[in-house]
Design a protein around this nucleic acid. Structure first.
Lengths: 157, 157
DNA sequence: CTCAATGCAAATCATTTGCACACCC
DNA sequence: GGGTGTGCAAATGATTTGCATTGAG
Protein backbone atom coordinates (compact mmCIF):
# COMPACT_ATOMS: atom_id res chain seq x y z
CA UNK A 1 0.00 0.00 0.00
CA UNK A 2 2.67 2.43 0.94
CA UNK A 3 4.58 1.41 -2.13
CA UNK A 4 1.63 1.95 -4.34
CA UNK A 5 1.09 5.32 -2.82
CA UNK A 6 4.69 6.21 -3.48
CA UNK A 7 4.47 5.32 -7.11
CA UNK A 8 1.31 7.26 -7.68
CA UNK A 9 2.92 10.20 -5.91
CA UNK A 10 5.92 10.08 -8.16
CA UNK A 11 3.64 10.23 -11.13
CA UNK A 12 2.03 13.27 -9.62
CA UNK A 13 5.43 14.85 -9.17
CA UNK A 14 6.14 14.70 -12.87
CA UNK A 15 2.82 16.25 -13.69
CA UNK A 16 3.33 18.93 -11.09
CA UNK A 17 6.77 19.67 -12.42
CA UNK A 18 5.40 20.15 -15.92
CA UNK A 19 2.84 22.58 -14.57
CA UNK A 20 5.31 24.69 -12.64
CA UNK A 21 7.75 24.69 -15.53
CA UNK A 22 5.01 26.19 -17.62
CA UNK A 23 4.38 28.72 -14.89
CA UNK A 24 8.03 29.63 -14.91
CA UNK A 25 8.04 29.95 -18.70
CA UNK A 26 5.04 32.20 -18.49
CA UNK A 27 6.70 34.34 -15.85
CA UNK A 28 9.96 34.61 -17.75
CA UNK A 29 8.18 35.58 -20.94
CA UNK A 30 6.05 38.18 -19.21
CA UNK A 31 9.16 39.71 -17.74
CA UNK A 32 11.34 39.22 -20.80
CA UNK A 33 13.90 37.13 -18.97
CA UNK A 34 15.92 34.30 -20.38
CA UNK A 35 14.89 30.67 -20.19
CA UNK A 36 18.18 29.25 -19.02
CA UNK A 37 18.68 25.55 -18.27
CA UNK A 38 19.83 26.43 -14.72
CA UNK A 39 16.52 28.04 -13.88
CA UNK A 40 14.55 25.02 -14.98
CA UNK A 41 16.95 22.60 -13.32
CA UNK A 42 16.67 24.42 -10.01
CA UNK A 43 12.90 24.59 -10.23
CA UNK A 44 12.70 20.90 -11.02
CA UNK A 45 14.98 19.97 -8.16
CA UNK A 46 12.93 22.00 -5.72
CA UNK A 47 9.68 20.43 -6.79
CA UNK A 48 11.12 16.97 -6.29
CA UNK A 49 11.86 17.79 -2.68
CA UNK A 50 9.29 17.33 0.01
CA UNK A 51 11.22 19.04 2.74
CA UNK A 52 12.25 22.56 3.51
CA UNK A 53 15.76 23.24 2.30
CA UNK A 54 18.45 25.90 2.37
CA UNK A 55 20.75 27.19 -0.35
CA UNK A 56 23.62 24.98 0.70
CA UNK A 57 21.49 21.86 0.59
CA UNK A 58 20.48 22.60 -2.98
CA UNK A 59 24.03 23.41 -3.93
CA UNK A 60 25.31 20.08 -2.60
CA UNK A 61 22.49 18.25 -4.34
CA UNK A 62 23.63 19.63 -7.67
CA UNK A 63 27.25 18.79 -6.91
CA UNK A 64 26.30 15.17 -6.29
CA UNK A 65 24.42 15.08 -9.58
CA UNK A 66 27.43 16.55 -11.37
CA UNK A 67 25.25 19.43 -12.49
CA UNK A 68 27.32 22.60 -12.35
CA UNK A 69 25.61 25.62 -10.84
CA UNK A 70 27.21 28.31 -8.76
CA UNK A 71 25.79 29.43 -5.46
CA UNK A 72 25.34 32.91 -6.86
CA UNK A 73 23.06 31.51 -9.52
CA UNK A 74 21.10 29.54 -6.95
CA UNK A 75 20.64 32.72 -4.93
CA UNK A 76 19.58 34.64 -8.00
CA UNK A 77 17.23 31.96 -9.21
CA UNK A 78 15.54 31.52 -5.84
CA UNK A 79 14.96 35.25 -5.77
CA UNK A 80 13.39 34.96 -9.17
CA UNK A 81 11.23 31.99 -8.21
CA UNK A 82 10.15 33.94 -5.17
CA UNK A 83 8.92 36.77 -7.36
CA UNK A 84 7.23 34.24 -9.58
CA UNK A 85 5.46 32.85 -6.53
CA UNK A 86 6.90 29.40 -7.05
CA UNK A 87 8.79 29.15 -3.78
CA UNK A 88 8.30 30.44 -0.28
CA UNK A 89 11.10 31.78 1.87
CA UNK A 90 11.32 31.31 5.63
CA UNK A 91 13.57 32.74 8.23
CA UNK A 92 12.75 30.30 11.08
CA UNK A 93 14.60 32.53 13.53
CA UNK A 94 17.96 31.54 12.07
CA UNK A 95 20.26 33.72 10.04
CA UNK A 96 20.22 31.24 7.22
CA UNK A 97 17.05 31.30 5.13
CA UNK A 98 14.97 28.22 4.35
CA UNK A 99 12.81 27.68 1.31
CA UNK A 100 10.05 25.38 0.11
CA UNK A 101 8.06 24.86 -3.04
CA UNK A 102 4.80 26.73 -2.90
CA UNK A 103 2.70 26.23 -5.96
CA UNK A 104 0.51 23.29 -5.01
CA UNK A 105 0.49 23.76 -1.29
CA UNK A 106 -0.31 27.37 -0.70
CA UNK A 107 -1.55 28.92 2.45
CA UNK A 108 -0.24 26.60 5.05
CA UNK A 109 1.61 27.50 8.19
CA UNK A 110 4.24 25.78 10.32
CA UNK A 111 4.69 24.26 13.69
CA UNK A 112 8.36 24.05 14.61
CA UNK A 113 9.07 21.26 17.08
CA UNK A 114 11.78 22.58 19.33
CA UNK A 115 12.87 19.11 20.45
CA UNK A 116 14.15 18.01 17.07
CA UNK A 117 13.39 20.94 14.76
CA UNK A 118 10.90 18.86 12.87
CA UNK A 119 8.58 21.06 10.83
CA UNK A 120 4.90 20.29 10.70
CA UNK A 121 2.61 22.03 8.27
CA UNK A 122 -0.93 22.99 9.11
CA UNK A 123 -3.77 25.01 7.77
CA UNK A 124 -6.42 26.85 9.68
CA UNK A 125 -9.15 28.92 8.06
CA UNK A 126 -9.28 31.27 11.02
CA UNK A 127 -6.06 32.84 9.81
CA UNK A 128 -7.67 33.91 6.57
CA UNK A 129 -10.62 35.22 8.53
CA UNK A 130 -8.30 37.34 10.69
CA UNK A 131 -6.55 38.69 7.62
CA UNK A 132 -9.83 39.63 5.98
CA UNK A 133 -11.00 41.39 9.12
CA UNK A 134 -7.85 43.46 9.36
CA UNK A 135 -7.95 44.29 5.69
CA UNK A 136 -11.40 45.74 6.10
CA UNK A 137 -10.82 47.40 9.43
CA UNK A 138 -7.62 49.14 8.40
CA UNK A 139 -8.23 49.59 4.70
CA UNK A 140 -5.09 47.71 3.74
CA UNK A 141 -4.31 44.84 1.48
CA UNK A 142 -2.51 41.94 3.09
CA UNK A 143 -0.20 40.43 0.52
CA UNK A 144 1.04 37.56 2.61
CA UNK A 145 1.56 36.37 6.13
CA UNK A 146 3.80 34.11 8.11
CA UNK A 147 2.79 32.20 11.19
CA UNK A 148 4.97 29.86 13.21
CA UNK A 149 4.05 27.99 16.34
CA UNK A 150 7.04 26.86 18.39
CA UNK A 151 6.19 23.74 20.36
CA UNK A 152 7.45 20.80 22.35
CA UNK A 153 6.12 17.32 22.84
CA UNK A 154 4.16 17.05 26.03
CA UNK A 155 5.65 14.29 28.19
CA UNK A 156 6.84 13.06 31.60
CA UNK A 157 3.79 14.45 33.34
CA UNK B 1 -3.96 66.39 26.14
CA UNK B 2 -1.29 64.63 24.21
CA UNK B 3 1.27 66.36 26.39
CA UNK B 4 -0.39 65.22 29.52
CA UNK B 5 -0.48 61.72 28.20
CA UNK B 6 3.20 61.87 27.45
CA UNK B 7 4.09 62.96 30.94
CA UNK B 8 2.06 60.26 32.58
CA UNK B 9 3.65 57.78 30.23
CA UNK B 10 7.11 58.83 31.22
CA UNK B 11 6.28 58.26 34.82
CA UNK B 12 5.12 54.82 33.92
CA UNK B 13 8.38 54.19 32.13
CA UNK B 14 10.41 54.69 35.28
CA UNK B 15 8.18 52.37 37.22
CA UNK B 16 8.35 49.80 34.47
CA UNK B 17 12.08 50.04 34.35
CA UNK B 18 12.34 49.35 38.07
CA UNK B 19 10.17 46.29 37.64
CA UNK B 20 12.18 44.84 34.79
CA UNK B 21 15.44 45.58 36.54
CA UNK B 22 14.21 43.50 39.43
CA UNK B 23 13.25 40.79 36.98
CA UNK B 24 16.75 40.86 35.58
CA UNK B 25 18.29 40.71 39.04
CA UNK B 26 16.11 37.75 39.84
CA UNK B 27 17.13 36.01 36.64
CA UNK B 28 20.82 36.68 37.16
CA UNK B 29 20.70 35.42 40.71
CA UNK B 30 18.82 32.28 39.76
CA UNK B 31 21.42 31.56 37.13
CA UNK B 32 24.39 32.75 39.16
CA UNK B 33 25.43 35.34 36.65
CA UNK B 34 27.06 38.65 37.38
CA UNK B 35 25.16 41.88 37.77
CA UNK B 36 27.25 44.05 35.52
CA UNK B 37 26.43 47.71 34.87
CA UNK B 38 26.35 47.01 31.12
CA UNK B 39 23.50 44.58 31.50
CA UNK B 40 21.39 47.01 33.44
CA UNK B 41 22.27 49.89 31.15
CA UNK B 42 21.22 47.92 28.09
CA UNK B 43 18.01 46.79 29.70
CA UNK B 44 17.17 50.32 30.73
CA UNK B 45 17.88 51.70 27.30
CA UNK B 46 15.66 49.10 25.68
CA UNK B 47 12.76 49.84 28.00
CA UNK B 48 12.98 53.51 27.19
CA UNK B 49 12.47 52.76 23.52
CA UNK B 50 9.06 52.41 22.04
CA UNK B 51 10.18 51.17 18.70
CA UNK B 52 11.68 48.02 17.37
CA UNK B 53 15.44 48.33 17.14
CA UNK B 54 18.48 46.48 15.89
CA UNK B 55 21.90 45.94 17.45
CA UNK B 56 23.49 48.76 15.56
CA UNK B 57 20.82 51.23 16.65
CA UNK B 58 21.49 50.40 20.30
CA UNK B 59 25.21 50.59 19.77
CA UNK B 60 24.98 54.07 18.28
CA UNK B 61 22.66 55.17 21.06
CA UNK B 62 25.31 54.28 23.62
CA UNK B 63 28.01 55.99 21.61
CA UNK B 64 26.00 59.22 21.63
CA UNK B 65 25.56 58.95 25.35
CA UNK B 66 29.29 58.41 25.81
CA UNK B 67 28.51 55.10 27.50
CA UNK B 68 31.10 52.57 26.36
CA UNK B 69 29.79 49.15 25.42
CA UNK B 70 31.12 46.89 22.74
CA UNK B 71 28.89 45.31 20.16
CA UNK B 72 29.92 41.88 21.40
CA UNK B 73 28.53 42.75 24.79
CA UNK B 74 25.32 44.01 23.27
CA UNK B 75 24.95 40.76 21.38
CA UNK B 76 25.67 38.73 24.50
CA UNK B 77 23.34 40.76 26.66
CA UNK B 78 20.46 40.61 24.23
CA UNK B 79 20.87 36.86 24.13
CA UNK B 80 20.69 36.87 27.90
CA UNK B 81 17.63 39.12 27.99
CA UNK B 82 16.04 36.84 25.48
CA UNK B 83 16.50 33.89 27.81
CA UNK B 84 15.19 35.99 30.65
CA UNK B 85 12.10 36.72 28.59
CA UNK B 86 12.69 40.47 28.72
CA UNK B 87 13.05 41.04 24.99
CA UNK B 88 11.62 39.55 21.85
CA UNK B 89 13.65 38.89 18.75
CA UNK B 90 12.31 39.23 15.22
CA UNK B 91 13.72 38.32 11.89
CA UNK B 92 11.27 40.31 9.69
CA UNK B 93 12.57 38.53 6.60
CA UNK B 94 15.84 40.46 6.71
CA UNK B 95 19.24 39.12 7.61
CA UNK B 96 19.58 41.63 10.40
CA UNK B 97 17.58 40.81 13.52
CA UNK B 98 15.23 43.24 15.23
CA UNK B 99 14.33 43.33 18.88
CA UNK B 100 11.73 44.88 21.16
CA UNK B 101 11.04 44.97 24.87
CA UNK B 102 8.54 42.30 25.83
CA UNK B 103 7.71 42.39 29.48
CA UNK B 104 4.66 44.64 29.59
CA UNK B 105 3.37 44.05 26.12
CA UNK B 106 3.32 40.34 25.61
CA UNK B 107 1.42 38.43 23.04
CA UNK B 108 1.01 40.93 20.31
CA UNK B 109 1.69 40.40 16.65
CA UNK B 110 2.85 42.59 13.80
CA UNK B 111 1.65 44.04 10.57
CA UNK B 112 4.55 45.07 8.38
CA UNK B 113 3.61 47.83 5.98
CA UNK B 114 5.52 47.10 2.81
CA UNK B 115 5.26 50.68 1.54
CA UNK B 116 7.38 52.20 4.26
CA UNK B 117 8.26 49.29 6.55
CA UNK B 118 6.21 50.79 9.32
CA UNK B 119 5.42 48.22 11.97
CA UNK B 120 1.96 48.08 13.48
CA UNK B 121 1.22 45.95 16.50
CA UNK B 122 -2.02 44.13 16.97
CA UNK B 123 -3.60 41.56 19.16
CA UNK B 124 -6.27 39.06 18.27
CA UNK B 125 -7.64 36.48 20.67
CA UNK B 126 -8.31 34.04 17.88
CA UNK B 127 -4.58 33.34 17.73
CA UNK B 128 -4.60 32.07 21.30
CA UNK B 129 -7.65 30.01 20.49
CA UNK B 130 -5.88 28.41 17.54
CA UNK B 131 -2.85 27.64 19.70
CA UNK B 132 -4.97 26.01 22.37
CA UNK B 133 -6.76 23.90 19.82
CA UNK B 134 -3.54 22.62 18.34
CA UNK B 135 -2.08 21.95 21.75
CA UNK B 136 -4.99 19.72 22.55
CA UNK B 137 -5.31 18.10 19.16
CA UNK B 138 -1.63 17.21 18.87
CA UNK B 139 -0.69 16.80 22.51
CA UNK B 140 2.02 19.41 22.33
CA UNK B 141 2.88 22.49 24.30
CA UNK B 142 3.21 25.67 22.27
CA UNK B 143 5.88 27.80 23.88
CA UNK B 144 5.55 30.79 21.61
CA UNK B 145 4.46 31.88 18.21
CA UNK B 146 5.21 34.52 15.64
CA UNK B 147 2.73 36.00 13.23
CA UNK B 148 3.40 38.69 10.66
CA UNK B 149 0.98 40.14 8.18
CA UNK B 150 2.64 41.85 5.24
CA UNK B 151 0.41 44.58 3.87
CA UNK B 152 0.12 47.64 1.70
CA UNK B 153 -2.11 50.67 1.90
CA UNK B 154 -5.10 50.36 -0.37
CA UNK B 155 -5.21 53.27 -2.79
CA UNK B 156 -5.76 54.57 -6.34
CA UNK B 157 -8.68 52.29 -6.99
C1' DC C 1 41.86 36.82 44.79
C1' DT C 2 39.19 34.28 41.20
C1' DC C 3 36.69 33.60 37.35
C1' DA C 4 33.01 35.31 34.54
C1' DA C 5 32.17 39.41 31.56
C1' DT C 6 33.91 42.92 28.74
C1' DG C 7 36.38 45.15 24.76
C1' DC C 8 38.65 44.73 20.74
C1' DA C 9 39.96 42.69 16.62
C1' DA C 10 40.06 38.84 13.93
C1' DA C 11 37.29 34.95 12.22
C1' DT C 12 33.17 33.06 10.36
C1' DC C 13 29.07 32.45 7.72
C1' DA C 14 25.33 33.79 4.70
C1' DT C 15 24.54 36.65 1.09
C1' DT C 16 25.88 40.12 -2.53
C1' DT C 17 28.71 42.08 -5.98
C1' DG C 18 32.07 42.79 -9.92
C1' DC C 19 33.77 41.19 -13.89
C1' DA C 20 35.03 38.05 -17.77
C1' DC C 21 32.91 34.67 -20.38
C1' DA C 22 29.06 31.99 -22.28
C1' DC C 23 24.84 31.44 -24.53
C1' DC C 24 19.75 32.68 -24.96
C1' DC C 25 17.11 35.46 -28.06
C1' DG D 1 25.95 39.65 -32.67
C1' DG D 2 24.21 41.97 -28.42
C1' DG D 3 23.29 41.89 -23.88
C1' DT D 4 21.57 39.16 -20.02
C1' DG D 5 22.74 35.27 -17.00
C1' DT D 6 26.32 32.54 -15.19
C1' DG D 7 30.59 31.22 -12.61
C1' DC D 8 34.10 32.43 -9.80
C1' DA D 9 36.27 34.95 -6.43
C1' DA D 10 36.44 38.82 -3.82
C1' DA D 11 33.55 42.07 -0.97
C1' DT D 12 30.19 42.93 2.39
C1' DG D 13 27.60 42.82 6.61
C1' DA D 14 25.75 40.54 10.58
C1' DT D 15 27.11 37.74 14.14
C1' DT D 16 30.61 34.90 16.74
C1' DT D 17 34.91 33.89 18.71
C1' DG D 18 39.61 34.26 20.94
C1' DC D 19 42.19 36.39 24.07
C1' DA D 20 44.05 39.76 27.15
C1' DT D 21 42.12 42.73 30.67
C1' DT D 22 38.73 44.27 34.03
C1' DG D 23 35.88 44.12 37.87
C1' DA D 24 31.90 41.63 40.42
C1' DG D 25 31.51 38.47 44.12
Amino acid sequence: MSEHKEISQKKTYRQEIEVVKNKLTEFLENNQQRKTPERYAILEEIYQLNEHFDIDFLYKLFREKQFRVSKATIYNTLELLLEAGLVRKHQFGKVQAFYEKSYFNRNHDHIIMLDDFQIIEFCDPRIERIKKDFEEAMDIEIESHSLYLYARKKNKS
